[in-house]
Computed example of a mutant assay.
Amino acid sequence: MTWTFDPPAPGVFAPPRRDTGCAVAAWLWSLAGLILLMVLLGGATRLTESGLSITQWKPLTGVVPPLSPEQWAAEFENYRRIPQYAQVFPDMDLSGFKVIFFFEWAHRLLGRLIGLYAALPMLFFWANGRLPGRLKPQLLGLIALGALQGFVGWWMVKSGLVERTEVAQERLAIHLTLASLTFAWTVWMAAGETFRRSGEGEPAPGARIFAFVLLALVFVQIFFGGLVAGLRAGRVYMTWPLIEGRFVPPLDELAAMSPPWRNVLDNMLTVQVEHRFTAYLLLALGLAQAVWLAIEEGAAPATRRALVFLALVAVQAGLGITTLLLAVPLWAGLAHQGFAMIVLAAATLNAQALAREG
C-alpha cells in the first residue's frame, strides 16, 4: 500500500492573503502603541525614583506582587538594604514603599505582556501562513531585541543596588535607546504592511540618505536624553538659551573630568550641552530637508512629510525648554519623553516611505 499526502486546500490552514495584511498591520500598530506606553511608564518610574524598589529579578514569579503582610515586609526589608533607602528615602514607611514598588512592578509586568503580545500573534500568523516572507526575519529580530531589552533592564537596575543611589546613566541611556529602536522597528514593519509602493517615482537624489541621517540623529538625541535623565542634569543649569551666562560654556568646564572621555557620559554640564546642541542640529537639518525638498519636489508627499517632521522637532524642542525651565515636573518630563517617540515615529515613517518609493 502506498501512502500519499494531499496538502490542505487554500483557506484551511493558510487562508487567502487578501485580508491578512490588515490583520498583521493592526497587530503591529497596536504593538507599537504598547511599546510607546512602556516608554512612558519607564519615564514615570524614573521620575518617581521607583526603579530600584524591586531588588531582585524574577522573570516568572515576579509577575505576582507581594500578597501578604509578611511578603510586603520582606520586600521592604530588601529595599532598606540598598543605599537609595538610606540616602534618599530614610523616612519612607511601608505605605510609601508600596507606591514606588507598584510603579516598577507595573513597568516590568507590561514588559512581560508586550513580549507575549509580540510572540503569540506572530506564531499564530506564521503557523497559518499569513506572514509575508520578508517579515519573518524582521519579527524574529524584534523578539530577540525584546529579550535583550529585558536583560539590559536588569543590568541597569543592578548598577544602583550596591554603591549608588540611582542607576548608572549610561545604562539608562542604553535601555532607553534599545526601547526606542524596538519602537521604530515595529513602526517600520507596520508601515510596510499598511502602505504599498506609492508609484510616485524616484525621489530626489540624496533624499533617502538625508532621511536616514535624520533618523540616526534622532537616536543619538534620545541617547543623550537618557544621559541627561540619568544624571538629573535637567535640574541644573536651568536657563535657556544661555548656560551660566554663555551660549557655549568654557572648554575647561566641558572637559573638567579626567580622562577626557568621561565628560561625554559623566559631566552634567557636558551632557546637557550635548543634548541641547543635538536638538539645534536636528532643527537645522530638518529645516534644510524641508526647504530642499520643497525646491526639488514641490508639494510632493516627501515635502509634506519633511514639514511635519520639522514641526514635530520644533514642538519637542519647546517641550524640552519648558521641562528645563520648570525643573522637570513629572508631567513635563513625561510629555518630553513621550513626544520624543512621536518624533522618532515621524523620522521612521519618512525613511520607510522613501525606501518604498521609486
Rank of each mutant, 00 (worst) to 15 (best):
D91L: 08
L214T: 06
W155K: 10
A86M: 06
T4Y: 14
A256K: 01
A290V: 09
L231K: 04
F151R: 07
R197T: 10
L113Y: 11
S95T: 14
L344R: 07
G298S: 07
S95I: 06
P90F: 10
M122S: 15
S53Q: 05
Y117I: 00
V271G: 01
V88P: 03
W292M: 08
L282S: 03
L34D: 01
F97Q: 12
L123D: 03
R235G: 00
R17Q: 15
R232H: 13
L110P: 04
G129P: 06
W185I: 00
K98F: 00
L281H: 07
I35E: 03
K136N: 10
A179T: 10
R18K: 12
T323L: 12
E104M: 09
F212V: 14
L344A: 15
V228N: 01
F89Q: 14
G225H: 03
L172T: 05
W105V: 01
G146K: 02
L354C: 10
L109F: 11
G201W: 12
L265D: 00
Q337G: 06
A191K: 06
T194Y: 10
F13A: 06
A347T: 08
L269V: 06
F212Q: 14
V228I: 13
A340C: 12
L231T: 08
R208N: 07
P250E: 14
R112W: 07
G33W: 03
D19F: 12
L227C: 07
T186W: 08
G141W: 05
A26C: 12
N78I: 00
A345G: 14
A327V: 13
V273N: 02
T323W: 05
G43V: 08
R208L: 15
L113H: 09
L120E: 06
A311P: 03
F13D: 09
A311G: 15
L334F: 04
P83D: 09
A255E: 10
L319Y: 11
L282N: 03
A118V: 13
W154L: 13
E274Q: 15
W155P: 04
W154T: 13
L326V: 09
G206R: 13
V24Y: 04
L41D: 00
D6I: 14
N78L: 15
L265T: 15
V64L: 15
L161A: 11
E297P: 00
L227F: 07
L145G: 11
R246D: 04
F223H: 07
Q289K: 09
I54G: 03
E163C: 00
T177D: 09
A207N: 03
G201S: 11
Q138S: 11
S258G: 01
V218Y: 02
G206Q: 11
N78H: 14
V313E: 05
A229H: 03
L148R: 05
S50F: 10
W27G: 02
P8C: 07
A118R: 04
K58S: 15
R276Q: 01
R262A: 11
L242F: 14
K58H: 15
T194P: 01
W72P: 02
S50D: 10
V236T: 15
W29K: 04
L123W: 12
F195A: 13
T48N: 13
L139Q: 06
A44I: 11
D6P: 00
